[in-house]
Simulated scan of single mutants.
Amino acid sequence: MKLTEQVVRGLRVAKLFKENTDRINNVDFSPTGDALISSSEDDQIVIYDCEKGTQKRTVNSKKYGVDLVHFTHAKNTAIHASTKIDDTIRYLSLHDNKYIRYFPGHTKKVVTLSMSPIDDMFLSGSLDKTLRLWDLRSPNCQGLMHLSSRPVAAFDPEGLIFAAGVNSESVKLYDLRSFDKGPFASFRVPQEKNFEWTGLKFSPDGKTILLSTNGGVIRLVDAFHGNPTHSLTGHLNDKKLALEASFSPDSQFVFSGSTDGKVHSWNAETGQRICAYSTDHTGPVQCVQFNPKYMMMATGCSNMAFWLPSPEDCA
């Protein structure tokens, strides 16, 4: 089934989970698309089966708290940032709920975490204004970069370069093999004064960089030349939250939540808003991701919603 504007308009909440008692702060699909993991402010990690539309397991992280949970490439492991005790990143075996390794170094809250799409490397950025490169096999930081402000960062789909957004005004591209030499490209993005970048993502085809903000605008930028292509607006962010925005797997559409519990979609090529969906979300929708392999989307406030195309679009 191909994703078209008609199919996007017809997306509906097929399943709503109400297991969490507090805000879901991150969701991540497994690379194969058959599982989804979420972390939340109530210190729970919940794993869902995407094929069955069921909740598989809950793992508690009462001691350290949990944020920014991500699957690694191994089936039953994840990394996550901590919200209590310290700002160490933790590598967790999900099937027996034991920590495999700790990654200490950050001295303030970790606000960005990105797993390499091809190997065991991952990136972390913190309010301590550093960006660190890690390898799951070693507790030692593989590379350290000092920045002038809170960083946002992500790997490109090939896993060969990464982008860092600095000071909510410039995007710098680094080659992983020589990132200590500094960026090989840097471009400024004209930015409104009253909000900050809170997230950065590459489109799955690698051609576009998405910059989400704590205001009512999402910026799309050409990944090769740095030219801003579209400003996506129409969603509400009156609480200055870090609302996640995400691409569809074909890079054609962008989805975002809003502070009034709605979810919005745009055409990434034209910048036109397609739809605002009413939902069963009771609070701001801060997590929105599209499954990389299946025709489904997940959105989270303190409830988790699984979205599917309406039946007439599947006929």
Rank of each mutant, 00 (worst) to 15 (best):
D260P: 06
A245L: 00
A242S: 12
T32R: 12
A276F: 04
A315Q: 07
S30G: 07
G165F: 01
P311F: 02
F253T: 04
S212E: 07
P284L: 04
S251V: 10
T107M: 08
L236V: 15
E5N: 10
D175G: 08
K109L: 12
T130Y: 02
V171R: 06
Q286R: 11
A81L: 07
W266V: 09
S138D: 13
G143W: 09
A276R: 06
I45E: 02
V27D: 00
G65S: 08
S186N: 10
D87H: 15
Y48E: 01
A74E: 09
K193R: 14
H264T: 00
P151Y: 02
T72M: 11
C141F: 05
S231T: 05
I47W: 04
I161Q: 06
N214C: 09
L11W: 10
W307M: 07
D49S: 15
V66Q: 05
G33M: 07
D280N: 14
Y102L: 10
R188Y: 09
G33I: 05
S258G: 15
V13F: 00
Q142M: 14
S114F: 04
V27R: 00
D49W: 04
K193M: 10
D175S: 08
E269I: 11
L144K: 14
A78N: 00
P190V: 02
F202G: 03
V221D: 05
D280P: 05
I89F: 04
Q286L: 12
L176I: 15
M297N: 01
S251K: 09
Y294M: 13
N291W: 08
K201R: 14
F187W: 13
S116F: 06
E19P: 03
S302K: 14
N303G: 11
S178C: 14
E51T: 05
P311V: 00
N227T: 11
F71P: 01
N76C: 03
E51L: 15
K207A: 14
